[in-house]
Design a protein around this nucleic acid. Structure first.
Lengths: 250, 250
DNA sequence: AAGCAATACCGTACGATATACGGGAAACGG
DNA sequence: CCGTTTCCCGTATATCGTACGGTATTGCTT
């Protein structure tokens, strides 16, 4: 599969930041609005996965003809961009507590977001749409980190690294939590394959460190628990490291 | 859009770990081998992007009929799985120096890998194919981290968190380094949109922290440089944090 | 030498998908 | 009532992945 999103960025921008031009009143009144299309697309992707979100099905779920969608959106890629920014706008970015509390709050919110919208992990996070959702997130993180006394470049890099880690970890965690419920691929197959792999194929002699970790109980947890632990430990370590850098500056 | 990879995991396993059954000699001799198909697919994706790697074009590049590919591979998803593991097998995992040196070596190798195979960022890293490449990587990381004296669960979580961060950061960096050279989307558009955005749309009053960071020169660097800085700083912080955890255990 | 079994090759056809095109319908102002 | 504007949507096309079934080429057996 490819990645979704990343339509013509100029088109996407125009849709994300609509100029407040009032409708002239002339012409046929719309049956659907852009907002409703995006909302319906998200609902469809939430329920059946991103692959099932086809223009045909989306139009049907709105009770309109397929080509009607193209009066409101230049193409599917731009629509996915809008879905992504709309999702980000759901984040509760209330500020409270120390910078660290704020970052951890962001991490939790991000987890919940991926839980609600599992399709987010199927959309590339590189070169995201420059919408209000993304900007609000950046603003939140930069504000939280700016209290640390790092240089502007370091603050920016720290923010980016947090975004990178948290997004990736949340996506992984959501994948395992949802456990293929919707992912378009039967989870039983995956588990069966995993079983077969460990019992039949895995060669302990060739991968001693893995064997050792297994023996020491490092893999006793379910994949979902393991992902959650990796999320927690990684975030803690990352923030500890950033805090230490700030300490050094003072 | 969508993500590639994630074919039937059982089929993929069978292909990743071929049993050493010698060909009987009977039957028509193959014109192509699985290895050649995977190599050609990677070359095609390297040059023209993953979206351009269609079964038709792949077959043509091998001088074979399209359906011939299906004698060697159950489907495209499985083929992408094989490409991914094959890419990971390119990592040079020579061990030398401290645990930290080893992790940093891994990070550099991973960067180079994404540089060579930009399409990797379009393939989901969740639930990766359990092939030799993935196992070698896990073994390398677990071995490096096992010297720290953490518990087995912590070691495993630390390894996972490093994988999460490094993969995501390397993918982001490669995206910006390649600068749309091949990504299937003209980079000029993106830059133009970015320009327009900052000059026309961005509202400083609404996003004070971003405005402040901009004013302080936090965005003076190119996106590629910024991504590289985020990679460096994030990895440093993450490893500092893990080292501190290990310190505390002793 | 002739038949047979096994294996690989591949042309054709089908269903799914995004979307270009162009005509038709509904509202408004004049 | 007519022209203009805006939106709706049926039809058609190009691109994919791949199911199906027939064909070609080899070694083995007799």
């Amino acid at each position: 599969m490819e990645r979704s999103g990343d339509g013509d960025p100029r088109q996407t921008l125009r849709l994300l930041w609509p100029s407040p031009q009032a409708r002239s009143g002339r012409g046929r009144p719309p049956k659907v609005s852009l907002d409703k299309i995006v909302a319906a697309a998200m609902a469809l992707a939430d329920r059946d996965g991103l692959a099932a979100m086809t223009m045909d099905r989306l139009a049907a779920s709105l009770g309109v003809g397929t080509m009607t969608l193209y009066t409101h959106v230049p193409g599917k890629a731009e629509l996915v961009d809008l879905m992504v920014d709309s999702a980000w706008r759901e984040l509760d970015l209330t500020r409270s507590g120390s910078w660290r509390d704020q970052i951890e709050h962001y991490a939790k919110q991000n987890m919940a977001l991926h839980e609600r919208h599992p399709w987010l992990r199927n959309v590339s996070t590189v070169r995201p749409p420059l919408g209000p959702g993304l900007l609000a997130r950046s603003d939140f993180l930069l504000a939280a980190l700016s209290t640390l006394g790092l240089s502007a470049a370091e603050t920016s890099a720290a923010s980016d690294s947090i975004v990178t880690f948290v997004d990736a970890a949340a996506a992984t965690l959501a994948e395992h939590t949802h456990a293929g419920r919707v992912s378009g691929q039967s989870d039983e197959d995956w588990w069966a394959a995993r079983q077969v792999f460990w019992e039949t194929i895995f060669d302990p002699a060739r991968y001693p460190a893995i064997e050792q970790a297994w023996h020491d109980g490092g893999f006793n947890r379910s994949p979902a628990e393991a992902a959650a632990n990796a999320f927690d430990l990684g975030l803690r370590a990352l923030l500890d490291g950033i805090a230490a850098m700030a300490q050094r500056v003072r």
